[in-house]
Simulated scan of single mutants.
Amino acid sequence: MTAFDGEDLVNPEVESEAEVAFEGALRPKSLAEFVGQRKVRGQLQLLLDAAAIQSRTPDHILLAGPPGLGKTTLAMIVAHESNRPLRLTSGPAIQHAGDLAAVLSSLVPGEVLFIDEIHRMARSAEEMLYLAMEDFRIDIMVGKGAGATSIPLDLAPFTLVGATTRSGLLPNPLRDRFGFTAHLEFYETEELVQVIHRAAQLLAVEIDRESLREIASRSRGTPRIANRLLRRVRDYALVDGRGASLEAVRAALELYDVDELGLDRLDRAVMSIILERFDGGPVGLNTLAVSVGEESETIEAVVEPFLVRIGLLSRTPRGRIATKAGWAHFGIPRNADALFGDDL
Score class of each variant (00 low, 15 high):
residue 307 L to H: 05
residue 260 E to G: 03
residue 209 R to T: 15
residue 35 V to T: 09
residue 261 L to K: 02
residue 127 E to C: 06
residue 91 G to K: 13
residue 116 D to Q: 02
residue 112 V to L: 02
residue 316 T to Q: 01
residue 282 P to M: 06
residue 171 P to I: 12
residue 108 V to G: 08
residue 68 G to L: 10
residue 204 A to K: 09
residue 128 M to A: 14
residue 237 A to R: 02
residue 323 T to A: 02
residue 73 T to M: 11
residue 256 Y to E: 15
residue 72 T to K: 07
residue 311 G to Q: 08
residue 109 P to M: 06
residue 185 E to K: 14
residue 277 R to Q: 14
residue 216 A to W: 03
residue 216 A to P: 01
residue 92 P to V: 13
residue 287 T to P: 02
residue 13 E to M: 11
residue 278 F to I: 01
residue 261 L to A: 07
residue 280 G to R: 04
residue 313 L to I: 12
residue 259 D to G: 05
residue 249 V to P: 02
residue 25 A to C: 04
residue 160 L to V: 13
residue 110 G to T: 10
residue 8 D to P: 00
residue 72 T to P: 00
residue 138 I to N: 09
residue 202 L to K: 15
residue 264 D to L: 09
residue 155 L to R: 08
residue 274 I to M: 06
residue 307 L to A: 05
residue 274 I to H: 04
residue 344 L to E: 09
residue 158 F to R: 10
residue 136 F to S: 14
residue 276 E to Y: 06
residue 341 G to K: 04
residue 92 P to L: 12
residue 220 R to V: 07
residue 184 L to C: 03
residue 270 V to P: 02
residue 129 L to Q: 10
residue 189 T to H: 01
residue 264 D to K: 12
residue 336 A to T: 12
residue 330 F to D: 05
residue 68 G to Y: 10
residue 311 G to S: 10
residue 57 T to H: 10
residue 287 T to I: 04
residue 45 Q to W: 03
residue 221 G to N: 06
residue 208 D to H: 03
residue 236 Y to T: 08
residue 313 L to V: 13
residue 160 L to K: 14
residue 286 N to M: 03
residue 31 L to A: 07
residue 342 D to F: 13
residue 202 L to Q: 15
residue 284 G to S: 09
residue 133 M to L: 08
residue 3 A to S: 15
